[in-house]
Design a protein around this nucleic acid. Structure first.
Lengths: 95, 95
DNA sequence: TAAATTTGGTTTATAAAATAAACTTGTTTA
DNA sequence: TAAACAAGTTTATTTTATAAACCAAATTTA
């Protein structure tokens, strides 16, 4: 039987964010925005959702006088990704 | 760089439909409904979208006096699934 | 040096998708 | 023959994603 796909991860942009954070330890808002080709508004919202779920940590600070937002994945986030991948595999068993 | 995920396939229910049709050659409306735990309305709509895109064929007939809707995947649908899987892999390169 | 532009976002509004509820047409059954 | 069921479709509602507008501070430019 097909497993449910975690709806928080099953979103183009949120998945892209998580994918980047799998590969990079930490990433700035602007970097993620560029890599994903997303608008700042959309990114802001999706980061918050991932953060609320505990999948990522978002750290806001100032570097000099510029705001700086850095994100990194949590262990919870990493396991969620593993589970999601696992579920996904079921959908392609016959390909 | 991460590839775009075909939005027609990047949907829990439509992906489940396609997954079933990968494994089964053809399937009836009612069967798909049971396997996916979807409502008839939702399924009806998603089948139509897949059909419009040419990813599946939907054949409506009568078996005696009962309507019968049978679906099967097209070659176009199969390649779309292959491409989608391929794109997806990029998102988990580091897992 | 005042006006315009850029940076790094957040908030609000709009569009698109998914889902659920209601309805249809014909059938069986109590 | 009225009630319930089957197999869907249509319409309405909710949720999600996206885009547009906005903000404050800093920087560039005329």
């Amino acid at each position: 039987m097909l497993k449910e796909l975690n709806p928080l991860l099953h979103s183009q942009l949120r998945l892209a964010i998580m994918s980047i954070l799998l590969s990079v330890e930490e990433a700035e808002f602007v970097y993620i925005k560029e890599q994903t080709n997303s608008t700042a508004g959309n990114l802001s919202i999706q980061l918050e959702k991932l953060s609320e779920a505990g999948y990522i940590e978002v750290e806001k600070s100032f570097i000099g006088k510029k705001p700086r937002t850095v994100c990194r994945m949590t262990e919870v986030g990493r396991s969620a990704m593993e589970e999601y991948l696992d579920a996904l595999k079921g959908y392609f068993a016959n390909l």
